[in-house]
Write a protein that binds this DNA or RNA. Structure first.
Lengths: 164, 164
DNA sequence: GTAAAACCTCAAGTACCCTTGAAGTCAAAA
DNA sequence: TTTTGACTTCAAGGGTACTTGAGGTTTTAC
């Protein structure tokens, strides 16, 4: 395996001077840059979370803006956010064209809201636990943590999500 | 085939219609009280996350303190915390005897620390996203969110966890 | 005493989120 | 041009977290 220096990745004839904004990335380059395995990238593409162009030889070529999507997906993964939620967050970010300023702004705000809700859920549980530590009991009666039949504890069975 | 060769926990005649404070719970009662399916309870028991006594007829009977464990497990599920982490959090809480005040206190503190780490990860991402919204870019170069090769983004492939 | 409801085990199935491997193709360096 | 590494698809496998179903037993209620 050849370890290239961090040079400009130019799959196509390089425009003189600066990197092309239209530069396309192979699956391997995408993987190295995002830390997401090629197999996972293909998987995300099957799910429609990301998209690629194909060369004449049927190889994937990703537009640069796809880096953002992949990075956001991997961030979500680290926070335990399911891919279905990621899909929702991406709802109005175009796959086929470079998303506009506004597209990403809107997506950022959606992401932030999601994160905020998750954080609030955690903060609340922290408060409950602090109370439990304070009273030294984890009391079944007093502790909302252990009686979560409120907005946090939607249903009895099945996968559960934080409220949205 | 009945096996009464040893003293087993018998289904005691319940005090008329009401629950005794040291009452043992069947798997069904446990399920109704915690919202966790009986199959999941059995699964947790297989994993060693919870434990039960058995009647002479080999049916599970849960001591009341097991309600806490199950509830905490289901809280963890809601927050996307894997069962392996739950196991860690329970490490020093006895399964066979009613955990003491101090056992639960220590567990509470461990839980709180776990939640705190998770929250901090989220808060950091929120800050990053706020910056991105602010600058209106989600810039690949400026945004740590999209270049997470720091303590949050350990390695390239494989399942990733929040730092602990 | 009997019948229904609740329980038991064990095996297989499901859903998500991928990874691994086989068998073959493409692309760029030597 | 040749070689090699990177790529392709497709099928199967794996970990987590369970659910479902079959076939049988126990407990409870009448």
């Amino acid at each position: 395996m050849s370890q290239h220096d961090e040079m400009e990745i130019e799959a196509e004839p390089a425009p003189i001077g600066k990197h092309a904004p239209d530069e396309l990335l192979t699956v391997g380059e995408m993987s190295r840059r995002t830390g997401v395995a090629p197999s996972a990238l293909r998987f995300y593409e099957d799910l429609g979370l990301i998209a690629s162009h194909r060369t004449g030889g049927n190889q994937r070529r990703y537009p640069r803006h796809m880096l953002r999507r992949v990075s956001l997906i991997s961030v979500a993964k680290r926070l335990g956010i399911p891919l279905s939620d990621v899909q929702t967050a991406f709802e109005n970010v175009p796959l086929d064209t470079t998303p506009s300023h506004e597209d990403w702004q809107a997506a950022s705000r959606r992401w932030k809201r999601q994160l905020e809700l998750r954080r609030l859920g955690i903060e609340r549980l922290e408060r409950e636990l602090t109370g439990c530590i304070g009273c030294g009991c984890l009391s079944m009666k007093a502790c909302r943590l252990l009686n979560p039949d409120d907005e946090l504890g939607e249903q009895g069975s099945g996968p559960q999500r934080l409220p949205e």
